[in-house]
Computed example of a mutant assay.
Amino acid sequence: MVEKQAKIYVAGHHGMVGAAIWRSLEKKGYKRLIGSSSSELDLRNQQAVRDFFNAERPEVVIDAAARVGGILANNSYPYQFLMDNMLIQNNLIDSSLHAGVGKFIFLGSSCIYPKFAPQPLKEEYLLTSSLEPTNEWYALAKISGVKACEAIRKQFDKDFISLMPTNLYGPFDNFDLQTSHVLPAMIRKFHEAKLNGHADVVLWGSGTPMREFLHVDDMADAVIFAMEHTFEDNLYNVGSGVDLTIKELAELIQRTTGHQGKIVWDSSKPDGTPRKLMDVSKMAEKGWRYAISLDKGIKETYDWFLANVDRVKEVKI
Rank of each mutant, 00 (worst) to 15 (best):
S293Y: 00
L277C: 15
L43Y: 02
I246S: 00
I21S: 08
P133V: 14
L235K: 04
R44N: 12
P114G: 15
R44A: 11
R67F: 01
D233E: 13
F213D: 00
L252N: 03
A307N: 13
L177R: 01
Y77Q: 14
K296V: 11
T230N: 06
K115S: 12
M83L: 12
Y236D: 02
A11Y: 05
L33Y: 08
D310K: 09
L277A: 07
W288L: 11
K147I: 08
S267H: 07
E136G: 14
E228D: 09
I246N: 01
G29H: 07
R32D: 15
A66M: 07
R23A: 15
G100E: 06
P120A: 15
S206Y: 01
P114W: 11
F231I: 05
K27I: 04
S39T: 09
T301G: 06
Y113A: 06
A64D: 04
W288H: 09
F172Q: 06
D266H: 05
I246V: 09
V61R: 04
E192M: 03
S39N: 09
E26Q: 07
W288S: 06
H215W: 02
A48M: 10
G205M: 04
D84G: 01
Q46M: 15
V309E: 07
K286F: 12
W288D: 10
K286S: 15
E232Y: 07
E212W: 02
T128W: 10
M83V: 11
T208W: 06
L168V: 10
A139I: 13
R289H: 13
A141S: 05
L43M: 15
R44W: 02
S96E: 07
A65L: 08
I34N: 07
I34Y: 06
K158P: 06
V61Y: 06
L25F: 01
L41P: 03
I112K: 00
G35E: 01
F106L: 12
T301N: 11
D176H: 02
Y113Q: 08
I263T: 07
V315Y: 04
A48H: 10
Y236Q: 11
I34T: 10
S36A: 15
Q47L: 15
L244N: 09
A73M: 00
F172L: 11
R57G: 03
P118C: 13
L92G: 03
I8D: 01
N135G: 05
D279K: 10
I93T: 08
V146D: 05
A117V: 14
F231R: 01
V309G: 05
T245N: 03
E3A: 08
L249N: 02
I298D: 06
V17Y: 00
R311Y: 06
L244C: 08
L306H: 10
N54R: 14
A99M: 07
M227F: 12
D233V: 02
L127Y: 06
N45G: 12
I152E: 04
R289W: 11
G69R: 00
G69I: 00
P209C: 01
Y290I: 00
E300P: 00
Y290K: 00
A117R: 14
K27Q: 07
L183S: 03
K4W: 05
V68I: 11
V216N: 02
D173N: 06
E123V: 10
Y113D: 04
P274D: 15
H98I: 09
L127G: 01
S24M: 03
V68S: 09
K103N: 13
